[in-house]
Computed example of a mutant assay.
Amino acid sequence: MPNKLSTQNIHLREERSILVLLHGFAENSGIWNVQKEYLSEYFEVIALDLPGVGNNPLTTALTIDSMADNVYTSLQSAGIEKAVIIGHSMGGYVALAIAEKYPSILQGMGLFHSTALADTEEKKEARRKSIKLMEQYGSEAFIRQAFPNMFSPGFKAKHPESVEAYVNMGIACPLASMEAYYEAMITRPDRTAVLSSIQVPVLFVIGKDDTAVPLQSVLPQVSLPRTSSIYIFEETGHMGMWEVPTASNQLLHQFTLFCQDQKL
């Protein structure tokens, strides 16, 4: 089922680049609200709900590829032929699938605390255990345990209200969607070859304190694309858009302008 974007009246100005923002696991498009507010002055910014949350209900079996199909269909239905697509965490996996399946729509791509690697066997097993815990004790208990760890220790101590807001966002995600997301991530393929062949600029945003997508696992990937932009946030975990919003805004602004200026 296409995202509701396809049924909305979107007035696109031809001279402005289009920036599409994709959220991660158990999040929704609201994760990008601060970025959308700032960047909308310069670009057409579209923050999408992936299937399973918000305006995009879960109606079929889910894979990373099916989510990529959903995003692509939504953008095509809205008459969008080129866009810079940025994905946070799981949203980055979706962006990579779009790059593999529908490369012509990309003007640029960003992996915001994300990776092209497939899950390790240890990671797959951890996700399966998490699914069992959610089924046994409910998703809220799992979210309250896991989500605060997405932030750096310093930010978590100084901004408990932001951590609680993120936890509440996760609690709002249906259990069925969380389980489907984890299954989709478990079965996703390694897409480092996509980075090697991609023809548009790629942005890598890395948090030095990110335990979900560690710095050392991403660094070997940054040399694979023809054109890479790399930014490492100090004292930042998995949530750079919330932990360092001003820097994130400026980084996405600069990268989108760079993609806009490329003659590929």
Results as ranks from 00 to 15, higher is better:
186 I>M: 05
36 K>Q: 15
18 I>A: 00
261 D>N: 12
228 S>K: 02
120 T>M: 01
24 G>S: 03
187 T>H: 14
213 V>D: 02
240 G>P: 00
62 L>Y: 09
262 Q>V: 09
8 Q>V: 12
166 Y>V: 14
232 I>R: 01
176 A>E: 15
250 Q>W: 07
44 E>I: 14
63 T>E: 04
167 V>E: 08
25 F>A: 13
128 R>D: 04
258 F>P: 11
217 S>P: 07
61 A>M: 12
234 E>Y: 09
233 F>R: 05
66 S>I: 08
230 I>Y: 12
53 V>W: 01
108 G>S: 04
160 P>Y: 05
73 T>I: 12
232 I>W: 01
54 G>F: 01
175 L>N: 10
129 K>W: 13
142 F>Y: 13
118 A>T: 07
4 K>N: 14
213 V>M: 06
168 N>Y: 10
180 A>T: 02
118 A>D: 09
6 S>N: 12
25 F>G: 10
7 T>R: 12
255 F>S: 04
164 E>C: 04
122 E>S: 10
170 G>L: 06
240 G>F: 02
140 E>S: 07
129 K>T: 12
105 I>E: 07
51 P>M: 05
64 I>F: 08
203 L>E: 00
91 G>T: 02
181 Y>G: 10
136 Q>K: 15
212 A>P: 09
157 A>G: 08
87 G>S: 08
47 A>V: 02
7 T>F: 11
207 G>M: 05
18 I>M: 05
195 L>H: 04
182 Y>G: 14
116 A>D: 04
258 F>H: 14
258 F>R: 12
149 N>D: 12
71 V>N: 00
115 T>Y: 02
170 G>I: 03
141 A>M: 15
35 Q>N: 12
111 L>K: 04
260 Q>S: 14
135 E>T: 02
67 M>N: 10
37 E>S: 13
233 F>Q: 06
199 Q>C: 14
72 Y>D: 02
189 P>T: 08
48 L>A: 00
220 P>S: 05
